[in-house]
Simulated scan of single mutants.
Amino acid sequence: MSRFLSNATNRIDAKGRVSVPSAFRVVLAERGIRELYCFQDFVFPAISIGGADLLDRYERQIAAEDPFSLAANEMSLLVHGGGVFLKLDAEGRLMITDFIRDFTGITEEVTFVGRADHFQLWRPQAFQAAQAQARGERRLAGGRSE
């Protein structure tokens, strides 16, 4: 099965577009994803991107809750209120909209980060810091006896 792996940083052009890495475009094509579901990540200052199956997964979680519960309503605020659909242009570029910029702080460059079944858009410095922190925490966790 094809997965989104690795990371790459690309420059945003003068019109606000960025080329999606070719490896990621291959995975999108293999999965038949034409319309990208983009949402503000729940944990990181990043935009998570996948196909309709990603939205479906979150909607199943919402549907499993009491529709009047706080949990269902909060999840809907994040999944629906914090999400949009975008498309790549004919050259495989994505428009970096205010929706993306405002949430991530992205300005001139975008780091694309593979997350198996989806990928994320990060401000390069934020990704480097988060990855270093995660590596440090994993290193510490590996040294603990349980």
Rank of each mutant, 00 (worst) to 15 (best):
70 L>S: 13
8 A>N: 11
57 R>V: 00
116 A>F: 12
101 R>I: 12
102 D>S: 10
47 I>V: 15
113 V>Y: 00
62 I>T: 05
94 L>C: 12
29 A>R: 08
30 E>G: 09
17 R>Q: 14
43 V>F: 06
69 S>V: 12
29 A>F: 08
95 M>G: 05
48 S>C: 08
51 G>C: 04
22 S>I: 10
48 S>A: 13
138 R>H: 07
86 L>P: 03
128 Q>M: 12
82 G>N: 03
129 A>C: 03
33 I>F: 03
1 M>L: 13
58 Y>P: 04
27 V>K: 03
62 I>Y: 03
66 D>H: 06
70 L>H: 07
82 G>T: 06
132 A>C: 05
53 D>S: 10
106 I>S: 05
103 F>L: 01
5 L>K: 13
97 T>N: 14
47 I>E: 01
53 D>R: 06
44 F>K: 04
54 L>S: 02
45 P>Q: 08
21 P>R: 09
16 G>N: 10
73 N>M: 09
46 A>N: 00
34 R>W: 03
129 A>Y: 01
145 S>V: 15
82 G>D: 05
34 R>T: 14
68 F>C: 04
73 N>P: 05
126 A>Y: 00
81 G>M: 01
48 S>E: 13
10 N>V: 04
61 Q>T: 11
137 E>G: 07
13 D>H: 11
73 N>H: 04
62 I>D: 06
89 D>F: 02
38 C>A: 13
127 F>L: 02
133 Q>Y: 01
21 P>M: 09
144 R>I: 10
135 R>K: 09
118 H>S: 06
70 L>G: 05
34 R>V: 12
19 S>P: 07
43 V>G: 00
80 H>C: 04
87 K>A: 09
107 T>L: 05
113 V>G: 02
146 E>P: 11
91 E>M: 13
45 P>H: 01
107 T>F: 02
110 V>K: 05
118 H>L: 14
139 R>A: 15
13 D>F: 08
21 P>F: 02
121 L>S: 04
74 E>N: 07
137 E>Q: 14
114 G>E: 06
27 V>C: 15
108 E>W: 05
117 D>C: 03
98 D>V: 11
8 A>Q: 15
40 Q>H: 14
100 I>H: 00
41 D>A: 09
21 P>A: 11
60 R>D: 15
66 D>K: 05
109 E>K: 12
16 G>F: 10
71 A>H: 10
53 D>A: 12
145 S>A: 09
39 F>C: 02
74 E>F: 02
77 L>P: 02
125 Q>M: 06
91 E>A: 11
65 E>N: 10
67 P>F: 01
45 P>E: 03
68 F>K: 06
28 L>P: 11
93 R>L: 06
141 A>K: 10
104 T>W: 02
137 E>M: 14
101 R>T: 06
93 R>W: 08
98 D>S: 10
91 E>F: 07
88 L>F: 02
19 S>V: 12
35 E>V: 14
37 Y>P: 08
20 V>I: 15
98 D>W: 01
49 I>A: 01
120 Q>I: 05
132 A>R: 14
78 L>D: 00
37 Y>Q: 11
145 S>P: 04
133 Q>D: 12
138 R>N: 06
39 F>M: 09
137 E>P: 06
101 R>K: 13
64 A>F: 03
42 F>D: 14
17 R>D: 15
5 L>Y: 08
2 S>P: 13
4 F>A: 13
2 S>I: 11
2 S>F: 05
17 R>E: 15
46 A>Y: 00
83 G>K: 00
119 F>S: 02
59 E>W: 00
121 L>H: 02
